[in-house]
Amino acid sequence: MSKDYIATYQAHTNIALIKYWGKRNQDLMLPVTSSLSLTLEAFYSQTQVHFAKDYASDQFILNDQPQSKNEVQKISNFLDRFRQLKATDLKAKVTSYNHVPTAAGLASSASAFAALACACNGALELNLPQKELSIMARFGSGSASRSLFGGFVEWEKGQGDDSQSSFAHPFDEADWDIAMIALIVNQAAKPFSSRQAMQHTIESSPFYALWAEEVASDLKHIKRAIKARDIHQIGQIAEHNAMKMHATMLAANPSFTYFQAESLQAMEAVRQLRKAGLTAYFTMDAGPNVKIICPYSEVPAIQAHLSKAFDPQNIIVSRPGPQPFPIPTFKN
């Protein structure tokens, strides 16, 4: 390989309605349960990878800032999987822009690694099918497997330690009256990573023994609700699933939580929306920010209510988002 290989892709975040919380195999990034998410139009990453003989080592630039040695190593490990498929040892420069707060519970790693997987596939001319790309993206971030697709996406947990059996696939295009509102209460990076929190929960929370059984039931019922386009049922199931996930953390030893005072205020605001006759349900991931599932047709009324208590700039509306797509190459 003597020529340069370069590609740039945009991928969108996804927010799980049925949560992924815990791995059964850390090395293979295999989840304890299946999960289901909605890809969002409003939050995305744009990532370029450039493989070239002129690079003596891998480089990683995020939002115009060179990243730490540890972060570069994580990216190098990910690139190695694609280099192995291409049978090349070319080093690469990865340049990425996150149009979403990083490490704030808004799935920035999902969009970032989905975009990087697609860029590697394009740059190295591997022509991997989407199923295989989803598997590859999983090794960067588990939830990145779901950002390979638009709309509602299911990530299959797979069987045993078979790495190839765990992948994501589209479930529903979400081309109907549904939206998600992100209520940003804190954009700062969370104090501990999802990976650390998941493992601590598995090892110390007595509630975790029930988690897989609850997820299997919630997943079955929410899939029926999505096909029926029953947003009340979708919201009720998603809200309860999120609270069950956070309950496993509260029961860990020592206990921990991603809730902040503003998070609790946001959840109560959603309950008040329902009392006012609006269709709104919340979900919350490993971070303080609250996401609201609602019909797109009710967004103006919901925004009006929320703006009384929250800064309108922190109320971000999103329609369902697309699968990753190529964009023009950045100018270095």
Rank of each mutant, 00 (worst) to 15 (best):
residue 227 K to T: 11
residue 70 N to E: 15
residue 146 R to I: 10
residue 229 R to V: 01
residue 262 E to P: 06
residue 30 L to D: 03
residue 315 I to H: 02
residue 37 S to C: 06
residue 155 W to M: 05
residue 217 S to A: 12
residue 107 A to L: 13
residue 41 E to H: 15
residue 241 N to W: 05
residue 15 I to R: 03
residue 229 R to F: 07
residue 277 G to K: 05
residue 91 K to W: 02
residue 132 E to A: 03
residue 302 I to W: 07
residue 70 N to P: 07
residue 56 A to R: 09
residue 113 F to K: 01
residue 179 A to I: 08
residue 58 D to R: 08
residue 37 S to P: 08
residue 241 N to D: 15
residue 73 Q to K: 14
residue 44 Y to F: 14
residue 189 A to T: 10
residue 281 Y to G: 13
residue 250 L to D: 01
residue 241 N to Y: 04
residue 172 D to Y: 01
residue 320 P to W: 04
residue 209 A to Q: 15
residue 220 K to W: 03
residue 161 D to E: 13
residue 320 P to H: 02
residue 18 I to A: 05
residue 19 K to P: 02
residue 81 R to I: 07
residue 108 S to T: 13
residue 246 H to I: 00
residue 242 A to K: 06
residue 222 I to C: 04
residue 124 L to H: 10
residue 41 E to P: 02
residue 284 M to G: 05
residue 133 L to E: 01
residue 314 N to R: 12
residue 147 S to F: 09
residue 300 P to R: 05
residue 138 R to Q: 02
residue 85 L to F: 06
residue 143 S to Y: 02
residue 267 M to S: 11
residue 208 Y to F: 15
residue 273 L to F: 01
residue 57 S to G: 08
residue 229 R to D: 03
residue 164 Q to F: 11
residue 158 G to P: 03
residue 49 V to H: 04
residue 265 Q to H: 15
residue 307 S to K: 00
residue 306 L to Y: 10
residue 226 I to E: 10
residue 42 A to I: 05
residue 2 S to V: 10
residue 183 L to D: 03
residue 51 F to D: 09
residue 316 I to T: 12
residue 206 P to M: 07
residue 74 K to T: 01
residue 258 Y to M: 04
residue 114 A to L: 12
residue 212 A to C: 09
residue 55 Y to L: 06
residue 174 A to P: 02
residue 89 D to S: 09
residue 107 A to R: 07
residue 307 S to T: 11
residue 246 H to T: 10
residue 55 Y to E: 06
residue 70 N to C: 07
residue 278 L to K: 05
residue 247 A to Y: 05
residue 315 I to S: 05
residue 102 T to F: 11
residue 63 N to S: 12
residue 154 E to Q: 13
residue 280 A to Q: 09
residue 5 Y to W: 15
residue 39 T to R: 08
residue 164 Q to W: 04
residue 22 G to F: 03
residue 175 D to C: 09
residue 276 A to R: 13
residue 253 N to Y: 13
residue 87 A to F: 06
residue 46 Q to Y: 04
residue 286 A to M: 09
residue 192 F to V: 07
residue 198 M to Q: 14
residue 321 G to N: 13
residue 157 K to W: 00
residue 40 L to E: 01
residue 181 I to D: 01
residue 5 Y to F: 15
residue 286 A to F: 11
residue 254 P to G: 12
residue 48 Q to E: 14
